[in-house]
Amino acid sequence: MSVILHVQGLTKGFTMHHLGSQMAAFSDISFDLNAGEFLLLKGQNGAGKSTMLRTLYRSYLAQAGQVLFHSDHGVIDLLRAADVDVTHLRRTEIGFVTQFLVARPRVSAEDLVAEPLRMAGHSAPQALDKARYWLKAFGVKDSLWRAYPTTFSGGEQQKVNLARALILPRKLLLLDEPTASLDAHARVALVARLQELKQNGTAMIGVFHHPDDVEHLIDRVIDLTPDAPNMEDRADVAV
């Protein structure tokens, strides 16, 4: 299997200037991730699981280490890449699925979901067709497709969010508690979509409040609890 991500000595902490203090999140994390592999991050609250995902995505700036991503353009260190390159990779190769929808005023659910496809060069009607397909798959009622998601319930917003985040297949997908606030139907649809993406080679790193939802997808686990053995094979670990 081909390596997608090579992480070496990744270290992150936060400087809080108004308190004059530093707060460590995690240090010296190393692992490789192959195409089609699913890596679960586990650990107690505050262990740094979401921080790790955001650091890999470059929403947070790492303090040390290397994150070599094997992009279609060659190998690129995500920690040091130009912002414009990171923006490009986010539009095309690296996805981030959070539990929160970033809705925009006056943009309908179907337009919001179609946007990543339009940005990737698909025609507007084609993007809209696929958007409707995924909204339906995640169980969003068709009467809501043209409405503004800012007014939706938390669960409905999350379905729109998932449809948008997963509509375009990526090489690397970062999943931050995507099943939170989902009903059973949407959870089944999500797991089926993740399974399909995995089979097609998408590498995934995920944080799940209830890992049982994706148990059959997990290949490996990293425990970020301080002093825990860092990395294990799925076969040896009770999730």
């Binding site: 260190d77 040091r80 130009a82 990779l89």
Partner: peptide, 12 residues
């Protein structure tokens, strides 16, 4: 500076 020093591979 803004990105002037960072290595770029995608956008030229």
């Amino acid at each position: 500076t803004l990105t002037l020093d960072a290595p770029r591979i995608v956008t030229t």
